[in-house]
Structure formats: C-alpha cells, structure tokens
Amino acid sequence: MITVKELFSKKELKTFVKFPFKLYKDSPYWVPPIIKQELETFNKDKNPIFKDAEARYFLAYKNNEIVGRIAAIINWLEVKDQNQKKMRFGWFDFIDDQEVSAALLAEVERIGKENNLEYTEGPVGFSNLDKVGVMTEGFDSIAPMVTWYNHPYYVKHYEALAYKIEKEYSESKFPFENVKPEFFKKAQELIKRRYQLTALKFTKTSEVMPYTDKMFDLFNESYSSLSSFVAITDIQKEYFKKKFISFVNPEYIKFVVDKNDDLVGFAIVMPAFAKALQKANGKLFPFGFKHILKAKKKSKDVIFYLIGIHPSYQNKGVHAVIFNEYYETFTELGIKTCYRTPELEDNEAIHKIWKHFFPVVYKRRKTFRKNLK
C-alpha cells in the first residue's frame, strides 16, 4: 500500500531533497544538487518567487520506506496575469512502481482542481530559470547542473497515467573546433559600425553588476513570445543576481550595448560543474567548494546558459558580435566542448543562430500535460 505525506518542516524538506541521492546512488550520470541551495529554493523567506507562487511538497511511502517525491506548484502570475490556468509540478522522482507515481500525481491533480485550474504540466520549476522536462533520450551522458536527470522508466509512467506531451526540448553540443571565425568575424565588425554597438568585456564580477538589471529586463523582452514564459519580477532579479552571477566567470558574460549604453544583446556561459558536483555529493563543505572552484577555473567544457537579443535588433546579426567575443575568450582559455541548455524544439530563431557550428543533439526531454476539466 502506498501512503503519501505532505511535508512542512525543514527537516522533512531535507528528506525530500535527499531522496534522489538514494534513487540515483549507482548512476554515473546523475548530478546531485547542493543540498543547502536546494533547501533555499524551497524557503519562503529566501526565495522571492513565493511572493507570486506557492508550493506544496509530498513524499510517498511503501512499507515505511520513501519511494517517491513531488512538488505541486502554482505560479499565480501565470494564472492571473497570463490566464494560463496551469497547475505545475516538479522535483518528481519515484521508483518504478506505477502506484507510486499515480499517488503523487493524484495530489497535484487534487490541488489543481481545488484551485479551479484547467490542466497540470510538468516536470517544471517555479519559473523559466528553473529546470524543465523529463529526459526521453540521452540517458548515457552526464546531466548538466542546470537540468534534471531521470531513469528511462519515467516516461512510461506519464503515458500510462494519460499524460500527453505538451512541450519538447533538445540539448545539443559541439566541439569548439567547429567554430569557424569566418562565419562572424567580418560580419560583426560591420554590424558594430552600422548600429554603433560596443561589446563589453569583464574581468571582475563587480563590473557586471551595474548591467544585471538591464540584462533581466532584456531577458523578459527577448523571451516573452515563447510559450510558457513568465516574466522575472524586480525582486526576483536581486535573488538571481546572488544565486547565479557569482558562479559565472565574469569573462563568460558578454554584453552588447548601443551608443546610449542601452543593452541590446547578452549571453551567459557557465563552466561545466557537473563532475565537480558529483564529487561534492551535495555538500559545499569541507571539500565541495574546492571541487567547484577548481571547475570554475579549469573546466574545458562550457554551457551556454542564456542568450538574448532585443526584439528590435533580432535578425540584425548581433549574435555575431557575441560569438566573436566568445571565440576570442575560448581560444585563449583552450575550451574544448560547448553545451547548450534545453531549448524548445519550436524555437526556430535559436536553432538558426547555432547552425554554423553543426551541433549534435545528445539529449531530448519533454513536459507532459493532463487536463483537469
């Protein structure tokens, strides 16, 4: 018999966070989160998303043993401002037992119906900067820290419970040697002159900070047309600054500004932290931080985390300016492989940007939906 328990205390939430450590203890591809950071994500006093969202957390038990978990999420900005009557769910992990996954999703569906929502979708996080999607291909490669990993059996559970595919994502990679400067070197010089643009270079995180609010504003503008997009609020900007920017090498952040110093394009690349996080095994201290710091300084693999171009400058070649900056930086640092985070299959604009680098899709993932009415 399966029993489901709702969680309330910090101790219970820590158990929630640590469940996948047991579920994936034998996997060479699963990447553990930092436990402290994961708990802060769920902390209403620390994560400003809770000003506009709410979440409830559940663990499933079988024979007094934890066998699954799920977070039931409502983003009220999405529901009220965008009229998307969506019940979100994420952090959904379970043993290969249909009764377990069914019992957990039943809690999500119940909460959705109680709030007069029209459908569930997951796995997703609170916002567009959270992890997304259940993996459907690519189980034999390590997961970047910005994505979820899961066992292959997850997908059949969604299908058996009448969940339908809602969105499809792909993750690709390419060797840096595929990047040929002739595709953008001359073009970027012409574009900078024509539109009076300047590429900014950073060597210190403190130099980046004056531009971060503008970056998040541009992120909101450039991604607003995509399905499922929920804008980042002002208070969330401050949170993400502290959470993300310090992890990123300042030389991996590229901004392009116009003659008025207004931001027209940006990109954020992160070192590949996955193997360092595996060594850290959920803890920053005493040795985890050392592994992460080493990866930040020495990793020869990088992940393109975000790239955004102002709508009025899209299709004008601004990405060529950004790629030229990265080409110079990565050549100097001896970067070997470039990875991309999950991108919507129907985002044709982003796929065109990368085509000259001949990327290979190595993972696919999907979100699933079920109507509640």
Rank of each mutant, 00 (worst) to 15 (best):
Y195I: 00
L200F: 10
L200A: 00
K204N: 12
E207F: 12
M209I: 15
M209R: 13
Y211I: 05
Y211E: 04
D213E: 15
D213T: 15
K214S: 14
M215R: 08
M215S: 02
M215H: 11
F216N: 10
D217I: 14
L218T: 04
L218D: 01
E221Q: 09
E221H: 11
E221C: 09
S222F: 05
S222A: 10
S224R: 09
S227H: 15
S227E: 13
F229Q: 02
A231Q: 08
A231N: 04
T233Y: 00
Q236S: 08
K237R: 13
K237Y: 09
K237L: 02
Y239A: 03
F240V: 01
K241T: 08
K242E: 14
F244H: 07
F244E: 05
F244I: 07
F244N: 06
V248Y: 04
E251M: 08
Y252G: 05
I253T: 00
I253V: 13
V256F: 02
V256M: 00
V256K: 01
V257F: 00
K259I: 15
D262A: 10
D262I: 01
L263R: 03
I268A: 11
M270E: 07
F273D: 00
A274C: 10
A274K: 15
K275N: 03
K283M: 03
L284C: 00
L284F: 08
F285M: 03
F287V: 02
H291V: 01
L293F: 04
L293N: 11
K294Q: 10
K294N: 11
K296T: 02
K296F: 01
K297T: 07
K297Q: 08
K298C: 06
S299E: 00
D301Q: 13
I303F: 05
I303R: 07
F304P: 03
Y305W: 14
L306I: 10
L306A: 06
I307A: 13
H310F: 07
H310K: 04
S312D: 14
Y313P: 07
Y313Q: 10
K316H: 14
G317Q: 01
G317D: 02
V318A: 03
V318I: 09
H319F: 12
I322A: 10
I322F: 09
F323H: 07
N324E: 13
N324I: 09
E325P: 07
Y326E: 08
Y327T: 05
E328K: 11
E328H: 05
F330K: 02
G334D: 05
I335P: 01
I335Q: 04
K336L: 11
K336Y: 12
C338A: 12
Y339M: 05
R340H: 13
T341W: 02
